[in-house]
């Protein structure tokens, strides 16, 4: 980045004109990294506002000022605003005893995964399952994609694999809840949660069918789904490969659960396929202010990371 600012001379008060050219360079740099134009323009405006009127020191200090300004700007939008410690919030629901004088009836913690077609919902749900099994939770996976061919079998295979893995290593237990194809997803989700409450599962992970965010019929189904399943966390999977559409995807899904409910976090998948072009992550967070909970970095169960802003 710093290379772009070489032609800013030291020792003067920065004006909009001084910054115009390097700022265009910065914008192009962000676009190149796959940040959506809307987000890139706003980020640059922020940095520019910060820098106008600042007196530059030596050559080094201009570079540092500019880099620091962009970094802090990025850090500000990427740093989560809510507690991301998913494990802690699960425990507070499943075993509320220590904290709460009047413990509510024990119930499973419900996580549902949503997103557009093919982004990696089912795969990352399975990775999340693996992570939770390693932490000795008992899981129910609910197959609520009743539309796409093979969706149920896909989760059946994952559940079988995960079961084998956790039995071998003495981790939590995992089971699949499925009702085949063609049925109403919201009803299955509700039944799955009831089943999990009776069976004393700690967590229900609900997979959903992929849907285009501009398909109003499928999007409106999400509100009913949210009401029926009452998820503690709704996570949206967005892929690192996606371009400018990321902004509209994030906004539409965030708005689809009705006025009282939004998304709780993103899982950004396929980060391993984009090298350092991780801009879609910036765009999605920028568009909604919702934090990134996990990054998907591959196709295997262990390929799930938390975001390190540094």
């Amino acid at each position: 980045i710093s290379g772009l600012f070489r032609n800013v001379i030291g020792g003067k008060v920065l004006t909009k004109e001084d910054l115009a050219k390097p700022m265009r360079g910065m914008e192009e740099h962000l676009l190149n990294k796959n940040v959506a134009r809307e987000a890139a323009v706003r980020l640059c405006e922020g940095v520019e506002r910060e820098l106008i009127g600042i007196k530059t020191g030596t050559f080094e200090s201009i570079e540092t000022t500019i880099r620091t300004a962009m970094e802090s700007s990025l850090r500000k939008i990427l740093t989560p605003t809510t507690s991301l410690d998913i494990l802690r919030s699960i425990t507070s629901v499943t075993s509320p005893s220590q904290l709460n004088p009047l413990p509510p009836k024990p119930r499973p913690y419900v996580i549902s995964i949503v997103g557009v077609n093919g982004v990696g919902k089912s795969t990352n749900l399975s990775k999340l399952a693996f992570f939770l099994l390693q932490n000795n939770f008992n899981l129910l996976i609910a197959a609520c994609d009743t539309f796409r061919s093979g969706a149920v079998e896909q989760l059946r295979v994952h559940t079988r694999n995960l079961k084998e893995l956790s039995e071998r290593e003495g981790l939590g237990k995992v089971e699949l809840y499925e009702k085949g194809y063609g049925k109403d997803a919201a009803n299955i989700a509700k039944d799955a949660v009831t089943y999990a409450t009776q069976g004393k599962f700690d967590v229900v992970l609900i997979d959903t069918a992929g849907r285009r965010h501009n398909d109003t019929r499928l999007m409106s189904n999400l509100e009913k789904f949210g009401n029926f399943a009452q998820p503690d966390k709704i996570l949206m999977v967005g892929e690192a490969l996606v371009g400018s559409d990321s902004v509209a995807q994030a906004r539409s899904f965030n708005a689809s659960f009705g006025p009282k409910r939004g998304l709780d976090g993103f899982i950004i998948s396929k980060c391993d396929t984009v090298g350092d072009m991780v801009g879609s992550l910036v765009s999605m967070v920028h568009a909604t202010g919702i934090p990134v909970v996990f990054l998907g970095v591959g196709q295997h169960y262990g390929d799930l990371r938390t975001l390190n802003v540094g």
């Binding site: 089912s122 399975s126 796409r148 061919s149 093979g150 969706a151 149920v152 079998e153 896909q154 989760l155 059946r156 295979v157 994952h158 694999n161 196709q299």
Partner: peptide, 8 residues
């Protein structure tokens, strides 16, 4: 991929 053949 899990379920790939079933899908096809």
């Amino acid at each position: 991929r899990a379920g790939a053949f079933d899908q096809l």
